[in-house]
């Protein structure tokens, strides 16, 4: 192997290692996020176990159809996100841009539905201090909504710098994708325990 060839191979190894370290950092951040939501969800679970009737009256006030629609929206956004990451890893920047944009739009649609859901609650005089159940409901779904908003901002920043990414350099796209899927996973648990069960 020539010296120039060896140096190129060495550079590629460094890049792969840097990519792996960046993903590891993102996974560690997501681990801390798991603990963040665990506090809220854990409190809700313990409160419900202590008082099985805690959610019965509250859940009747919730619109599970809207929540199911939002679940489908977030699942669609996870698909578009992973297709975007897949596209950039294969060098298809235009498809990646479209998929990231679609993900941001679906995330925005989720927040719009959430806005109407909250508006309906406020119109009926339901606030976080209405009951223990609604305190948990607004806390969990509110912080989840803020995470969705954070994800949309990250997606828009990706779009602004999309010309800098390609098959050799897409760490940020992959990491924003990891964050977006995590937000989806949190909702996967919130939907049944808050709205349905």
């Amino acid at each position: 192997m020539s010296e120039a060839h060896a140096m190129t191979a060495h550079g590629a190894d460094d890049r792969i290692e840097a990519f792996e370290r960046a993903r590891l950092g993102m996974w560690l951040f997501l681990a801390s996020e798991v603990m963040f939501f665990a506090g809220f969800i854990g409190a809700y679970v313990v409160l419900r176990m202590a008082n099985p009737h805690l959610a019965v009256a509250g859940q009747k006030e919730l619109n599970w159809v809207l929540a199911a629609l939002n679940t489908a929206v977030l699942i669609c956004s996870s698909l578009t996100m992973v297709l975007g990451v897949n596209a950039i890893s294969k060098g298809d920047r235009a498809k990646c841009r479209n998929m990231v944009l679609l993900t941001a739009l679906l995330g925005s649609a989720f927040l719009v539905v959430k806005f109407f859901e909250y508006s309906g609650k406020f119109a009926h005089g339901i606030y976080p201090n209405t009951s223990t159940f609604f305190s948990c409901y607004f806390l969990m779904t509110g912080f989840h909504g803020l995470h969705v908003l954070g994800g949309i901002i990250a997606l828009l920043l990706l779009l602004l710098g999309i010309k800098h990414y390609g098959p050799e350099r897409y760490t940020k796209v992959e990491n924003v994708g990891l964050y977006w899927h995590f937000v989806d996973i949190v909702w996967i648990f919130l939907f049944p325990i808050v709205y349905l069960l």
Binding site: W27, M35, G177, H181
Partner: peptide, 27 residues
């Protein structure tokens, strides 16, 4: 399945599983 396929965990090195599972054990 979101973690394994969309987040590509099944293609990561084994220590990534530790990072993903440890907070779940704590929860």
């Amino acid at each position: 399945i979101v973690t394994l396929f969309f987040m590509h965990l099944r293609h990561e090195k084994s220590y990534f599983y530790g990072v993903a599972l440890f907070p779940l054990v704590l929860v």
